[in-house]
Amino acid sequence: MYPRWLWPLSALPGVVWLLVLFLLPFYAVVCVAFGSVDPILLTAQPAWNPSQWNAGWVNHVLQLLAPGNIYWDVFIRTCEYVILSLAGCIVVGYPVAYYIARHASRTKSLLLILLVLPFWISYLMRMLAWINLLSPGGYGLRFLSDTGISSLLYHAGVISDPSNYLGGESFTVILALIYGYIPYFILPLYASLDRIDRSHLEAARDLGASPFRAFWHVTLPLSKTGLLGGAVLITLPMFGDYYTPNIVSGAPSTSMIGNQIDLYFHGGPQPTIGAAITILLSAFLMILMGYYMWTIHRASREVPV
């Protein structure tokens, strides 16, 4: 018999970790957003006491987030990029995860190793590699030209210059986001698909369901939590991403909301605006997170014990 306090105690390191490395820094960002700026050095002066909060900066950013204002445009662009990247991850990642979970038997371990292989190289380095691949004379650019993909994308209006993917193309930014984040999407999805009891599928087939109907009515619903988990895992960092568009594009026409945060935090007299955008973006992401938690909780209640 274990003492009653043992299991709650085991959560202590995690709680301390969360407090020290998430809640405290997040509170600091909130205090910066509601704080002031040193008049000489222009550094942020957080207002630690909520009774002294100054809402001017947050109100200012809220106004600029209204339709037609600058943050609205960049926010909508960010949402478009994230949604399209997520769609790309699902289209590419689901079949991969499905194959590894359901059909790869002897090669499963090898494929899983290959999946985590990108983690051995830093995200930044992987993005920088694209610069060389897509530069004039780069293998990636040559491949896209030789296979006719560039021509196809150009005639479909997806890219404006088939010989210059690095010239500020939205397509390149979305492609880079998919490339950079897809391993984080596939792994939780694989875990979810791998856990599905094969007897459910067999039952569906025994009852006359076609392979597609069995997938649609059994596999897909049962992998919903994995899909959502993977989606949350990649969309949250994508919303704050600024270095991917910086590296593979550099054009203001492809900048994301993270670039605005970076700009204001990077120096100058208004770090408070950077903090205000950060907390408003977090508030928006909490709504998405809330939906995910609600779905997960409902799914866990529906699982028969």
């Binding site: 509601f34 002031s36 700026v37 040193d38 008049p39 000489i40 222009l42 909060w53 100054n54 809402a55 001017g56 900066w57 947050v58 109100n59 200012h60 809220l62 007299p269 208004q270 408070t272 709504i287 809330g290 939906y291 609600w294």
Partner: peptide, 29 residues
Amino acid sequence: FLARSGGAALSLSTISGILAACSNSTTAG
């Protein structure tokens, strides 16, 4: 859930009321 989200959205409008209770300055110096 949708009802609660709607409530949350509505409550966002009350945030401006709360924010109005704070001071409202955007001068850095």
